[in-house]
Design a binder for these strands. Sequence first.
DNA 1: GCTTGGCACTCCGGACATTCGAGTGCCAGT
DNA 2: ACTGGCACTCGAATGTCCGGAGTGCCAAGC
Lengths: 337, 337
Amino acid sequence: MQEERRLAVLRAIVEDYVSTEEPVGSKALVERHGLGVSPATVRNDMAALEDEGYITQPHTSAGRVPTDKGYRLFVDRLTTVKPMSAAEKRAIATILDGAVDLDDVVNRSVRLLAQLTRQVAVVQYPTLSRSTVRHVELVALAPNRLLVVLILSTGRVEQRLVELGVDLAEDDLADLRQQVNRAATGEVIAEAVTSLRALVPSGESTPLGSVAETLVDAMSDHRSDERIVVGGAANLARYGDNFDSAVRPLLEALEEHVVLLKLLGEASTGELLTVRIGHEGPYQELASTSVVATGYGPGDESLARLGIVGPTRMDYPGSMAAVRAVARYVSRILDEA
Amino acid sequence: MQEERRLAVLRAIVEDYVSTEEPVGSKALVERHGLGVSPATVRNDMAALEDEGYITQPHTSAGRVPTDKGYRLFVDRLTTVKPMSAAEKRAIATILDGAVDLDDVVNRSVRLLAQLTRQVAVVQYPTLSRSTVRHVELVALAPNRLLVVLILSTGRVEQRLVELGVDLAEDDLADLRQQVNRAATGEVIAEAVTSLRALVPSGESTPLGSVAETLVDAMSDHRSDERIVVGGAANLARYGDNFDSAVRPLLEALEEHVVLLKLLGEASTGELLTVRIGHEGPYQELASTSVVATGYGPGDESLARLGIVGPTRMDYPGSMAAVRAVARYVSRILDEA
DNA sequence: GCTTGGCACTCCGGACATTCGAGTGCCAGT
DNA sequence: ACTGGCACTCGAATGTCCGGAGTGCCAAGC
């Protein structure tokens, strides 16, 4: 069947182009892959593929290069995520198992991903929104100043300083601590917010009011949701060519965590592995970069996302495998904690 | 005096080269700067400067370029840190005053520095070593599991999980909390460590022993000292030329926080503004990058360092001014907190 | 004794022409 | 439907040339 072979040709073009970084011609193609036909035949197929928009020529009489559409087809239909080798799995497991706390898990994950894929890795901290309140601690720094410490089920700790209008006795503090904990501990963030609000008539400026307000603020603070860790930026150096057009906007995006979050989160439903290729999505400047991302979290719940960012010309099967594997192991670790 | 003019010539060369990024010739030099002599005279001076190793030619019959030694002389003797404009000062103040906690201060500082200097900025978190223990909090997650929260005078919070061999009643917990706080609160880290160690016979695996050990561990954990924030990496894009030789090693260094710390810390005595130029120091790969750094901290104490990293061909006076100004404002803010 | 104008020399970089080869498209033959 | 052959295209590499910016040096001048 010709149709089938055409796809094989597309696959071969993608694979060759990814590894050689050079436009691939008909002759080289038949030599390096075992498709048992002549270059001329391949040329016909390539012409057809070009008509359909899967590949293109940088200029007349050059080899072919996959288009974004070509990569898309390749990712969707021509590749299955190849499983990691046993050795790689072991490496992932041992590296991540050594982590001591949440920060460490995230940091190790990002390094690991960067190493495995040789791309820039991005890991989002587990979001607050679905986590529950484990405990609220109040520490008196002075009679009229409290440090409010909010401890969440994910291991995250948020701290705020509260200035009270009045001085507070030790007994009152214990009382206060008990009240807020009774209202919040064990609840999902959203519910904790409502019970805290119910606890005190709005606008009341008692110590209880201030503390509750601070807690609500800390819980709904979106800064926390946006925490992101980036690693492997040194891999950008391997971009080599088209520095201005590719690396600069990417570097800028890496500092704009909001943009990064959007990139990771596109089509973020579920913990499905998602791949964004080149121009797909709203960021024109990132036309030559792709994103491979997936959700992760304890118990098959997708609390946050992690993934990699790289040139459209990347090893998709390998990257997808690495991202998926790391996400699984991280999820498992979060499960245990 | 010729000697004086020679230095003026060197200064002019540095200034011109920094702004134009091109080797500077004798004619352009007399035109752009008001030194009232002829090109020929300048040529003689340049020949002398070259003999002494302050400038060099990329190739015969090209203009001159400062050497590292030339930059060094420029920085040491030919420039005074030019004060920031009132508007810049205001901008710094308002941006930093908006910070809500230590994390925020550090993050804002790094962005600010990157913006002001258009270079890569690096800020080290205030070190533990000189800070004091503000409070220790123990939270029972389960009868036999404790979350130990260590709160320091700098606002830093360290948290550790402790597995106790045995279950612990609420009363015992309160008792435990009181014991460790009596030993540690208010003390400088180093002393807190010794009092905690004195609290319990070594090797004893009581709950108190476990908690004390964990605290000591958290206090002496050097991971904490090494925390560093990097910003403005997008400014690397402006390096333009010599990508491989300059940008790649720098990107790698930015991920190696240990290296960064060494870079910031060289000659770190006091809160003096230090400048490392090109080959100075042990890192061969960073031969074409310079570091401008200074210490900062509350009350003229140098708790940590901050600074910028850029090409040797950088605006030293401007960078030095910005680094110094930011360090001062940050220190002031830490004072107030 | 500096400083200066003049002059010959060097060398980089851009413009242009030439060549080479990989690759294509198309057509006729199997 | 595939294949071999052939003419064609175009980019990359190479070579040559020339202009200009810059230097070094020397002899003359202040």
